[in-house]
Amino acid sequence: MIELENLSYTYGGGELLSDVSLRLQPGSFHFLTGPSGAGKTTILKLCYGALLPTTGRLSVFKQDIARLDRDQLALMRRRIGVVHQDCQFLDHMTLAENVALPLTVSGQIDTAQREDLSELLSWVGLGTRLDSHPPELSGGERQRAALARAVILSPDVVLADEPTGNVDWEMSQRLLRLLVELNKMGKTVLIATHDMSLIRAAKSQVQARVLRISQRQVQLAGADL
């Protein structure tokens, strides 16, 4: 589904990633861990085409990402749901409009979908906040809303960058449960986190692999959980 082959990435003259090889199989659940600045976010950005590798090959849905034009890249991103640590909402739009943004940009929105939106937001516990604006939401609510937006197009892959970075333990468990639920629906999930307690908590819920970035390379961190 997503395959990095001998990939390296250089930024500002320094090599952030070196000779990275990684394969995410359909329906798999991966944690990507490592210290801050190790390159977790960079790998996620490479996976959805926000960055291009300096050398090596990156294939997403069997397409070489370096060969995609901007339109093809946009179509590819519709198959990948991304949850950012800072969520990135459009503050002038309501929560419902923000969550429906992937539908809007892909021309799939219609008037009958407010009920579907309500159902989706109820799934992440925000069923009553449809008309709220992002600045009115707490950190945890924003993370859950970002997750709802990430899955609204029913993507094949969900990438989450420190999804529990700004929330308390209870909320992080709630988010983890939602991500596990998505994985059980057949979605490939990759979570970048430095929160080891989150990884330990996932042990009882899902068959996950833990990848660790160390010295600019990605390694399997011990046995599978």
């Binding site: 901007r70 339109d71 990135q88």
Partner: peptide
Amino acid sequence: AQIIEVLRLVGARDSF
């Protein structure tokens, strides 16, 4: 620019 980044993140084409 940040709005453009969000739109691209959710799969918006440049033409949109």
